[in-house]
Computed example of a mutant assay.
Amino acid sequence: MPLDEDKYPSETGRRRFVKGVVGSAALSSVGVGGAVALDTATSPTGTGGGITQFMGIENTDGPAPRGMPIIPLTVDSEGALKGVWPDVKTETVQGQEVTIAETELGGTTYSSAWFQYCGIQTAEGLDPEADQDNFFRSSSGPSLSWQSEAKESGEKLFVDDFSDYESWGNGIGQSGLGKPAEAAWRSDGDVQTVPVQVLRSPEVSKMANGEGPYSELPGEVQSFIGAATEQNFMAWLNKCTHFCCVPGFKTYEGSAKFDAENEVYCQCHQSVYDPFSPVSKSFVALPRPGE
């Protein structure tokens, strides 16, 4: 395909959606005044949105404008992995009653607005009051062979599924760096899927404790990682912030050509993310559908 050829034919409607995504991504670099103007303009047809500070895994290469947001997690008494959903409350924003999900975690304001980009803000499960549990469930048709062999679609992910994480490898990059899985979150029933990447790695606790190369992590980032991870597990919303594709950690063999074999690689346009470089960033969150 020629480099200047539009990836999505105009008659599919996908092209128009992508242009909207690119436009919103570009807004992440504008000043606060411009972003506030956007929020004012969009509020009548939606709720939430505007300048949002978030914690994510850093975008280190490629056209993506920013990292992907981290999803705090916990492990229940049976060893099942669950994403943490913020506390739900109602506030008045610009004279409008808005239901939001927001809580303090490790000194950071964790909000459902972190996930309001790329059309994912329309997912029913990301409505603050959605009747959904928070378990991470194995995705349908995962790219990782270990997962397709061991887990059924929709089955919960458990700690024991990652017992070999300190030695696991699949021929891509360095073995022993961690074991990933592809999951869905707050996606029970016939609703839009919220795609998640789960990773268990010995590097996670090092980040939380500021050990070795992570001693230079900003205090707010280190505190958040300590509160948002457990038993060396971490997770993030697996939606590339460029064209909304689904990247992968140790998933695509071609990642080595872009020095991304030990990082998260998006094969659509070669964006790269480093799960071991958590950062605090801001972007313009899109409003959810009106209530």
Rank of each mutant, 00 (worst) to 15 (best):
Q53G: 14
N238L: 09
Q174E: 15
W146G: 11
S10W: 03
A113V: 09
A113D: 13
G83I: 08
G95N: 05
G62T: 11
S140E: 11
G119W: 02
R66G: 09
Y8R: 08
M68H: 12
G141P: 11
P9S: 02
D259S: 13
L177G: 13
H269E: 15
L81G: 12
N134K: 12
P44A: 06
N238P: 12
Y273P: 09
T60I: 12
C268R: 04
R15K: 09
V159G: 04
S145M: 10
K257F: 10
K239A: 14
D190A: 14
E155L: 04
V264C: 15
S282R: 08
P9D: 06
D274C: 10
A80G: 15
G173T: 10
S112F: 01
A150F: 04
D188E: 15
A181F: 05
S282T: 14
Q197G: 15
N134H: 15
P275N: 01
Q121K: 05
F54P: 10
Y110K: 01
W114L: 08
G50V: 01
V204Q: 02
G23L: 14
S215V: 02
G210K: 02
P44T: 12
N170I: 02
F283L: 08
I225S: 00
T40A: 15
F276L: 02
G31N: 06
F224Y: 02
S205T: 13
V88C: 11
C245A: 15
F54R: 03
